[in-house]
Design a protein around this nucleic acid. Structure first.
Length: 207
DNA sequence: ATTTAGATCCTCT
DNA sequence: GAGGATCTAAATG
């Protein structure tokens, strides 16, 4: 039986959670009951009110990012660029709006359904980016604010990474803020995976 | 292999 | 009214 992540697993702050999630399995249960799953291979940490790259920089609390102020282990799903959704996992105590963005998965279960959702067939093209993985797993704003736990549409199965598994880190992708917050190494990935996002695949840094 | 533009719409100012 | 924690196809070298 796989160990399912509970509240303590998530309440570590964004940087720790971003690393801890690598190698774990994201499980999506569809309304039909079908199970889709992938191994998390790329994440980004968003550090909250001081982080110029975060939606909650300056404690700017709005209807959109309200879920980031909730319990650790809450899903924060937002819509962007007119066509894409992205999922985060809240990593702080209530009122402490920090979170981890899930950027890429290695597909494990339900590849046929993912392929249908994505209109792509190659496994590497199913979940290798934050917008792609949401499309593959049918994640949209209706999942915003849901707890990431058993009995809910999303849950995390804890998988302990091998000690030998290298974790790489580098600047986050796509930020408009610039400066030290854009440069900070808050993106983490498993360079051994071929399923990291395009940009990540090119710059394989080591830690 | 790398670059470029276009899609597309919700959220906040 | 502006812009975004992105993706894809098409064009170029």
């Amino acid at each position: 039986m796989p160990e399912v992540a509970g509240r303590d697993f998530f309440a570590t702050g964004a940087k720790v959670l971003a690393r801890r999630l690598l190698g774990c399995t994201l499980v999506r249960v569809l309304p039909s009951g079908e199970r889709l799953a992938g191994r998390i291979v790329e994440t980004e940490a968003y550090l909250g009110v001081l982080d110029r790259g975060s939606h909650t920089f300056g404690n700017r609390r709005t209807l959109r990012n309200e879920s980031m102020y909730g319990q650790p282990g809450t899903a924060y799903v937002y819509f962007t660029y007119g066509m894409h959704h992205c999922v985060n996992i809240v990593a702080g105590k209530p009122e402490e709006p920090v979170a981890v963005l899930l950027r890429a998965l290695e597909p494990l279960e339900g590849l046929d359904q993912m392929a249908a959702n994505r209109n792509r067939t190659k496994p590497r093209e199913l979940c290798s980016g934050p917008g792609k993985l949401c499309q593959a797993l049918a994640i949209d704003r209706s999942l915003d604010r849901t707890p990431i736990a058993v009995g809910h549409p999303l849950s995390i199965e804890v998988v302990r990474r091998a000690r030998s598994e290298t974790v790489a880190s580098g600047p986050r992708i796509g930020l408009s803020c610039g400066g030290e917050w854009a440069a900070a190494p808050l993106r983490f990935w498993l360079p051994s995976s071929r399923c990291v996002s395009g940009e990540g695949y090119l710059r394989r840094g080591l830690e």
